[in-house]
């Protein structure tokens, strides 16, 4: 009833977890059956280990939060040699978010992940707003976006998802550019660039001054962008941004997303993904829907 497809990937259901909000999945094993998920997008992984930005890295904002973690991760070698072996036998699609600062770095990481049997896809992150060379430079310019995708396409042979930033004038132009460069799917939106100031201390809440806004506050922006992109490209779209319940996920599906990712909501309720899957099943039963694909893109 809930099965859906992204390029060659078969998802048990459209619910995946967003990169950077779900660790390597292990952190949530006490709370949920990870095998029930449609997919897990693991932590953004770079060519070398990264320490990330200094503390403080987060601030709560109305119905959301700002973060400036800055791609802290163990690096692709440790991922391949250690983390991969701990998680590879999960019965779900394990997708690695590949981040970087240069085309060479993206290609190095992508080609190393390409060799891992149990990783059927990568999500190319050309949209991190939190490091100086975090890829958002690639993701805000159609030519640059196309260039990095076509170079990674040469070394990566499985499903290539490209994660888009909302911090652009026309997300459709970027989506079309990466589609033409060989992307198999696009996911959107990454966080919206934002800022908050502690007026008592008279300084920004974040060590980096600006950071990425996520949570329910961004959902209407995300639904709008998913709807625009889904009508403009032929490749499948994955929607994310502020999903906290089945109704939120359904908005993205109706707007044209073939699957969704749950992000910040994992911090609020570590079991939220299971409730969303149950809620989608309940919705389909209630509306007499035998295949979730019937409602994808109906708007």
């Amino acid at each position: 009833m809930l099965q859906t497809k992204i390029h060659n990937l078969i998802l048990k259901n459209p619910v995946m977890t967003a990169s950077g909000t779900f660790g390597y999945g292990e952190e949530f094993a006490d709370f949920i059956d990870l095998n029930r998920l449609g997919g897990i997008i693991v932590k953004g992984t770079t060519g070398e280990r990264r320490q990330g930005n200094p503390y403080p890295r987060m601030a709560e904002t109305p119905s959301g939060m700002l973060n400036a973690v800055g791609l802290q991760n163990v690096g692709v070698e440790t991922f391949c040699n250690e983390v991969y072996h701990r998680i590879k036998d999960l019965d779900t699609n394990i997708i690695v978010n590949v981040s970087g600062s240069s085309i060479e770095e993206y290609c190095k990481t992508a080609s190393m992940i390409d060799a891992l049997d149990r990783i059927p896809a990568i999500e190319l992150n050309i949209s991190c707003p939190n490091v100086k060379k975090g890829g958002m430079g690639f993701g805000t310019n159609p030519d640059m976006a196309a260039q990095v995708v076509s170079e990674v396409r040469k070394v990566y042979h499985k499903t290539l998802i490209v994660k888009l930033t909302p911090n652009v004038t026309s997300v459709v132009d970027i989506a079309k550019a990466v589609e033409n460069a060989g992307a198999d799917s696009v996911s959107l939106i990454n966080t919206l660039l934002g800022m908050a100031i502690d007026v008592e201390k008279q300084r920004p809440y974040l060590s980096t001054i600006t950071g990425g806004l996520s949570g329910p506050a961004v959902k209407p922006v995300a639904v709008r962008m998913v709807w625009q992109v889904a009508h403009a490209v032929k490749i499948p779209v994955i929607g994310l941004g502020g999903i906290t319940c089945a109704a939120d996920a359904l908005e993205f599906l109706m707007a044209g997303a073939k699957a969704v990712q749950v992000g910040t909501a994992n911090f609020i309720d570590p079991a939220v993904t299971m409730k969303i899957i149950d809620g989608l099943e309940e919705y389909c039963r209630r509306h007499g829907i035998s295949d979730i694909n019937e409602i994808i893109g109906i708007i």
Binding site: G20, T21, G23, E27, M58, A59, V69, T264, N266
Partner: peptide
Amino acid sequence: ENMMACGIGACLCCVVD
């Protein structure tokens, strides 16, 4: 007692140097 979001090691917001 750093500011944190998830409390379970997923968000990486509460780090100490």
